[in-house]
Amino acid sequence: MDQEIRSYCRSKGFHLHTEARWLGYNEADRSALLEMIREVRPGENHFKDLLDWLDEIALRDGTPIATLLQKELSGVVTDPRLGRNDKLKRLKEELRRLRFPRLAGIEDEIHRRIRNLKLPRGISINVPPGLEGGGVGVKIEATSQEHLRRLAADASRAIDSDEMKQIFTMLDSGTAGT
């Protein structure tokens, strides 16, 4: 197994530090990482990001990396419908969700409430990555003056909605109001 790890690292041009870091895990974790690598084949920067998050989750939760990869994340890694790039993208998304559970929960809830606004095409509402800044971005893109008038009226209705109030409450304190 270690030979295969070394071969993979050399074939991808990984730094020796990264190779040593991988080889420094216990056998179960090394093996689980190798299985993941065979499916996802990430480059070095992605691999180091994955290792950082896996390490931090393992330290926080007391869950071995092998368990995380084989139980929590195996569905993504082995999904035959996903290509390699999609697997990597989904894996990082799922891992981010495990690494930042409360942040991801708030983001999900905000996005659910944005969807509930049922805004027409031409209006988009965004919150910043990681919710940093605390602001909501609203973009209106109209093709005529009349279209703009209609979109502005729709935006105005959205502004006054309870959903929008809850979005700002969550951005402010992380919890929805009553």
Partner: peptide, 8 residues
């Protein structure tokens, strides 16, 4: 810490 958490 993400902003709503640290503001809290």
């Amino acid at each position: 810490y993400f902003q709503p958490l640290r503001v809290s």
